[in-house]
Amino acid sequence: MTTAHSLAAEALTLGYGDRVVVESLDLVVPAGEITVIVGPNACGKSTLLRSLSRLLTPRAGRVVLDGKEVHRMPAKQLARTLGLLPQSPVAPEGITVLDLVGRGRHPHQKLFSRWNSEDDVAVAAALEATRTTDLADRAVDELSGGQRQRVWIAMALAQQTDLLFLDEPTTFLDAAHQIEVLDLLTDLNHSRGTTIVMVLHDLNLAARYADHLIAIADGRLHTAGTPAEVLTEESVRAVFGLDSRIIEDPVSGRPLMLPIGRHHIRPGSHEWHHVNDGQS
């Protein structure tokens, strides 16, 4: 099992060039839970994730892991505690699954040190957890999108970090594979206590899988809390500018967001209509 880590952002301001993307943001990532960050396109959620994992140096404020500022920690030491799977990692042409997953061992290897049995165990465990054992000798470029995503997650698992960050791990996957990936991450969280932080686009999947939900709007924290606290009709309107109806998901008991557009609204459902009318 993993040790509990405290991770928090304090007055974080982030940007690229002249553009400020995230402004003076405070947040706490609960240890041992699955945190999902949601928000509209370009609201700064990926930027936030990159900064939490040290990829982007803050303009102001800081990210603190176990009392230490992550941007001041030695890179390899941090990489043994905190892993990140970016949105579009690049697989070298022709690389096999086993070799790719093995690269996750990088922060555990010293200069010129040889590959050891600990590395083998970590790679085997990562393959098994992601059910990619059968793919081990295949070339990554031959795999389907869902298989490839599992392999990338296996690489991140081989890194054996207590915190794992993922930037939109379900993009480009069909419904079945999205669920497969999210179930896999939940397994990990349950069996090892890995703290997971991910950005998701799909609000309903976010509400289904998150223990802790963070809504970002315009580079600021809008709300954070349990899905039931965060996913409300008011917050969806405030964060996404979208009218919706929130019902209880009959499958999970979590909130389920039903968007209300301009079309396909059942006649007579006035109570759903008036929200829209009120705005136009």
Binding site: S53, L84, P86, P89, V90, P92, H106, P107, A156
Partner: peptide, 12 residues
């Protein structure tokens, strides 16, 4: 080779 972000995440 896995991309700059992945490499940074691996401690490079």
């Amino acid at each position: 080779q896995l991309g700059d972000d992945t490499a940074s995440a691996l401690g490079v």
